[in-house]
């Protein structure tokens, strides 16, 4: 219990310190040991998120973006395992933390928003019951105060008539409403870090815009750091401060959003951005990336993108190391689009 009390006070101290990142992930490796071989779902991933910052973690299916999120929360179940690396949350290593400690952090200091809000919501309990439980699980607060806090959190997400929603069951709400409730629950205990795993993918465009708007505003207001996992670069282009692009378990490129979108360095980012229709002229062929996302089982050594890469050479048989070519731009490539970016 003492550990809990410490962290309850810590945030205030830490938040003043702008330079210390909320989360630092170093050389994280999460592998799944299946019957047909080991899957290196996350392979040597490093990144950090600062207070109030939104990091967009972009990648296609199988790139390991969601597994990275689950690893941070300690939610990897066998046959998966964090093999090596460090996940430092405000200086505390989560890889070596006890399950009890992780349990205490989750929903309190670190919260998660899933693609399907029903992962968060219990279908047989009223919204207020769930929200009050979520508060009381982590702090001493009487029921009335907790309910008021739940009301405030719902109001923050811009949900119409929050009082009515509190008395509703999840099935009485629309998909967008449910996701808003899930977001309110994530923000309930004013966490230091929120991991959002494609929370708007299943929603309609106008509803997605509302959710993005509210998530962005909440992060700025509360100073919560956020990792927004998505397959849609266009979503993070408008939302994130920085972007990390993942491919086959590795982060291939990191940088400030504008830099990555306007001047991508890694051939994969270049290809991905080139294949987005809105960036092209109507009716013309898109610049497609040939081939398909590789099978992570028995992935050959070297750069995982080499089979699809127009710039690949024999050098790519060796795994490229992370290099910081420009300030704040880290990339993993032997042949980056450096000349184009420099212009």
């Amino acid at each position: 219990m003492t550990a809990v009390d410490e962290t309850m006070e810590n945030p205030e101290i830490q938040r003043d310190d702008e330079t210390a990142p909320t989360l630092v992930v170093e050389n994280l490796k999460t592998h799944f040991f299946t019957r047909i071989g080991a899957v290196k779902a996350v392979d040597d991933v490093s990144f950090s998120v600062k207070t109030g910052e939104i990091l967009g973690l972009a990648g296609e299916s199988g790139s390991g973006k969601s597994i990275t999120g689950f690893s941070i929360l300690g939610l990897i179940d066998p046959p998966g395992r964090v093999v090596s690396g460090a996940i430092r949350f405000k200086g505390e290593d989560l890889v070596t933390a006890t399950p009890e400690r992780l349990q205490d952090l989750r929903g309190n200091r670190i919260a998660m928003i899933f693609q399907d809000p029903m992962m968060t919501l219990n279908p047989v309990l009223r919204i207020d019951t769930q929200m009050i439980e979520a508060i009381q699980a982590h702090r001493k607060m009487d029921k009335k105060a907790a309910r008021q806090r739940a009301y405030d959190a719902l109001e923050m997400t811009g949900i119409p008539s929050p009082g009515e929603r509190l008395n509703a069951y999840p099935h009485q709400l629309s998909g967008g409403m449910r996701q808003r409730v899930a977001i309110a629950i994530a923000f309930l205990n004013e966490p230091d870090l929120i991991i959002a795993d494609e929370p708007t993918t299943a929603l309609d465009v106008t509803i997605q815009a509302q959710i993005l708007h509210e998530a962005q505003a909440l992060c700025k207001r509360t100073g919560t750091a956020m990792i927004w996992i998505t397959h849609d670069l266009a979503v993070v282009a408008g939302l994130a401060d920085r972007i990390a692009v993942m491919y086959a378990g590795r982060i291939v490129e990191t940088g400030v959003t504008d830099d990555v979108i306007d001047k991508p360095l890694h051939p994969y980012s270049v290809g991905l951005l080139g294949s987005v229709p809105s960036a092209n002229k109507r009716g013309e062929r898109l610049n497609q990336i040939p081939g398909m996302t590789p099978n992570l089982i028995g992935l050959p050594p070297g750069c995982a993108f080499k089979a699809r890469c127009p710039r690949a050479s024999d050098q790519c048989d060796a795994t490229p190391e992370v290099s910081e070519l420009l300030p704040g731009r880290k990339i993993r490539c032997h042949h980056p689009h450096f000349e184009e970016a420099a212009q």
Partner: peptide, 18 residues
């Protein structure tokens, strides 16, 4: 309201309602 690559760090001003 469609997210676009060329619209950066915009302040989303969505239409209201479900």
């Amino acid at each position: 309201e469609v997210p676009r690559l060329d619209q950066r760090k915009r302040d989303f001003q969505p239409i209201k309602g479900e």
